[in-house]
Computed example of a mutant assay.
Amino acid sequence: MAVWDFAMPSPLHLCRAFHNSWASWTASEARLRIATSASDTTPLPAEAIHAPPLPPPVDTVYCSTDAGFSGPDRSPTFGFYVRSMDGAFVAAASGPLACPYDPLLAEAMAIHEALSWLQEHNYHNVQILSDCAVLVASFRDAGSYRSYLGIVLDSCLRLINSFPACSVKFVRRGSNLVAHALAKHVSAVEARTVWRDSLPPFISPAMI
């Protein structure tokens, strides 16, 4: 410790000196941060801040998907329902899946079935709708799944990237009743079926 004039500074003097130095340093750092922030930040124009989201392309189709397990042997099935932006019927399909009793895997395979059909029939702008929130979130980190689910997710992502515009979104079960009914109907276990003219008769208008 330094000594001036053969006398040591008192503890009170040292505390006051420290607090004064600390206050000066923190004030200087604060001014520096404000100046740096102001120089590095480019303000967004007002029209960018308040701009509404862009609407989807006019030829976008919405495709609701679902999976289910039927009967005592829990046979896995899928269903999907395609409609235009104005709600007009486009197509519907259902059929069996080849997978074990794994609800998340079955949901992923149902989306894969829908994407494959949409690609095969030359649809370009697609929104896939699923009521499985866990699956929708899984697409953000598909590479972390070291299982057959990861393989299916990766295959789905390859299909998604083949479309000019395609996204997977979560919807509540109440908005996914048609796809759910298609997947759970007994005909889905027996064979793959595609409807192009109208929805099958077992779909009630209240579900749409």
Rank of each mutant, 00 (worst) to 15 (best):
R158F: 00
T26L: 06
A2S: 06
L149W: 04
P52K: 08
T193R: 15
A188Y: 14
S198E: 15
Y81N: 15
A51L: 05
P53G: 05
N122H: 13
S187L: 14
I49H: 03
A181D: 08
S10C: 11
Q119G: 04
F78H: 11
V82S: 00
Y123W: 12
V136H: 12
L44W: 09
L129G: 01
V194M: 12
L97H: 06
L115S: 00
V194S: 07
P56W: 13
A17L: 10
H121N: 15
V126T: 00
R192Q: 15
A114Y: 03
Q127H: 13
F69D: 04
W195C: 06
H121P: 04
G150P: 00
R172D: 11
P96E: 08
A30L: 04
G150Q: 05
C132T: 05
I111T: 07
Q119M: 09
S75Y: 08
R146Q: 15
Y123Q: 11
Y145C: 04
L12H: 05
D197Q: 14
S84I: 02
L44F: 10
D73W: 06
Q119L: 14
C63F: 04
Q119I: 01
C156E: 00
I203E: 09
L157W: 02
L159Q: 05
L159P: 00
S28E: 06
P76E: 06
V171K: 07
V134Y: 00
F69P: 07
G79L: 07
R74N: 12
F6R: 14
I208T: 13
D40R: 07
R140F: 05
A188D: 13
S198A: 14
P53N: 07
W22P: 00
S138Q: 01
K184H: 13
F89W: 07
F163M: 02
A88F: 08
R74W: 07
A114W: 02
C63A: 12
A110P: 08
Q127D: 04
R83G: 01
W25E: 01
A30R: 02
S70H: 12
Y81D: 15
L14Y: 01
P45I: 00
S21L: 10
V186R: 14
T42Y: 09
L159S: 03
S204A: 15
V90W: 03
P53Q: 07
S162A: 14
F18T: 09
P56E: 03
T65A: 06
L118N: 00
W117P: 01
A188C: 10
A206N: 10
S204L: 15
L105A: 09
S94I: 02
P96C: 13
A23G: 00
A51N: 05
F78I: 09
R158W: 01
T36N: 10
R172M: 11
Q127A: 14
D197C: 14
I203S: 07
L12S: 09
F78M: 12
I208R: 15
A133Q: 14
C132I: 05
P201Q: 11
V171F: 08
S116W: 10
F170L: 14
S167P: 02
A88C: 10
C63Y: 00
I160G: 00
A206R: 15
S84R: 13
S162K: 03
S21V: 04
V82C: 03
R31T: 00
N122L: 11
T77A: 11
N176W: 13
L105H: 04
S162V: 04
D102S: 12
P96A: 09
A17R: 05
E120V: 02
V82R: 00
